[in-house]
């Protein structure tokens, strides 16, 4: 039960520097707890209330809009160097509520809840009438494109066999008929050139992730698979990722269909945030 005067909040300007600092700390927290999809950047602070907190400090209660970047959450690139996904690429927005404690000059997030949603088809069409929209990740063409691209990557790979972790986004392009996919992969204890049964391969204890972009184009009598994967340095127990390895690219013709892999994760629009306090 409160003693003395009731706690009252103040409402600073949403663009107040201290409010922005709290929002940036919250977005950093969000990105460090996302386990799939892409990092998000701060777009707009919708609302802010600042509550006194006993015995010390203040709590910022924030409403924040974010935008999806092109950096996958496994990509160690600093957020400041990640570009925002443009409307023509079918942007994805995040809508977040945060509570951020400021104490002794330090910000720490005590509550986070975010939902994300893709921009409307109408908005994309307004900017780019011919641009492909985001496709369902369980579309058979998407599933096949990811399988074919990963198989093509593993065939050209002299190291570990890589498994699919998630399909992150996909677009169906009408002309030329092709499927664009982006997906995350992880190294296993199998050697790519020797793998007989991918189901028996296990992820390495020191997780080594990668991120791939691929286009599978329908051709007469087959298809062309163009895939580029960036493999990141292995992650020790404390996740402090280092700069990325050189990019590996292959461009090969592959006869459909490729081998089976684990199912894709939920749609790109789903955003999973780690433990809430």
């Amino acid at each position: 039960a409160p003693h003395g005067p009731q706690l009252t909040y103040s409402q600073p300007n949403c663009d107040d520097p201290e409010t922005e600092q709290a929002a940036l700390a919250a977005v950093d927290y969000l990105n460090s707890h996302l386990q799939q999809g892409y990092k998000h950047v701060l777009n707009q602070i919708d609302k802010v209330k600042v509550w006194p907190r006993r015995p010390f400090g203040v709590i910022f209660e924030l409403g924040v809009d974010t935008l999806e970047s092109t950096c996958h959450v496994f990509d160690p690139t600093a957020l400041a160097n990640c570009t925002v996904r443009q409307v023509a690429e079918h942007a994805v927005e995040g809508d977040c509520d945060f509570r951020v404690l400021k104490q002794d000059g330090q910000f720490s997030v005590v509550f986070a809840k975010c939902d994300s949603s893709p921009d409307s088809a109408e908005d994309v069409r307004k900017v780019c009438p011919q641009c492909p929209l985001l496709a369902q990740l369980n579309d058979t063409r998407v599933v096949h494109a990811v399988e074919a691209a990963l198989a093509a990557f593993n065939v050209q790979n002299n190291g570990s066999y890589f498994q699919l972790v998630e399909t992150s986004r996909a677009q169906l392009v009408p002309l030329p008929p092709s499927t664009r996919v982006e997906f995350a992969i992880a190294a296993t204890d199998c050697v790519a050139k020797e793998v007989a049964d991918p189901a028996k391969c296990n992820l390495l204890a020191e997780k080594q992730y990668g991120f791939c972009k691929a286009t599978v184009t329908e051709k007469l009598g087959g298809e062309e698979v163009a895939v580029t994967c960036t493999v990141f340095q292995p992650q020790p127990a404390a996740p402090q990722p280092q700069p990325a390895d050189p990019t590996m690219s292959v461009l090969v013709a592959v006869d459909p269909p490729g081998p089976a892999f684990p199912p894709a994760g939920p749609p790109a629009a789903a955003m999973v945030v780690g433990p809430m306090v």
């Binding site: 300007n13 701060l42 707009q44 602070i45 919708d46 802010v48 935008l67």
Partner: peptide, 28 residues
């Protein structure tokens, strides 16, 4: 025709609403 000159309103500092804040990229 002759028209009366308009009465100028008081010009003061523009007060922006405190929230929402600026859009950094674009609005979805």
């Amino acid at each position: 025709g002759v028209t009366q000159p308009g009465v100028a309103g008081a010009v003061g500092p523009m007060v922006l609403p405190p929230c929402p804040g600026r859009v950094r990229h674009f609005k979805v």
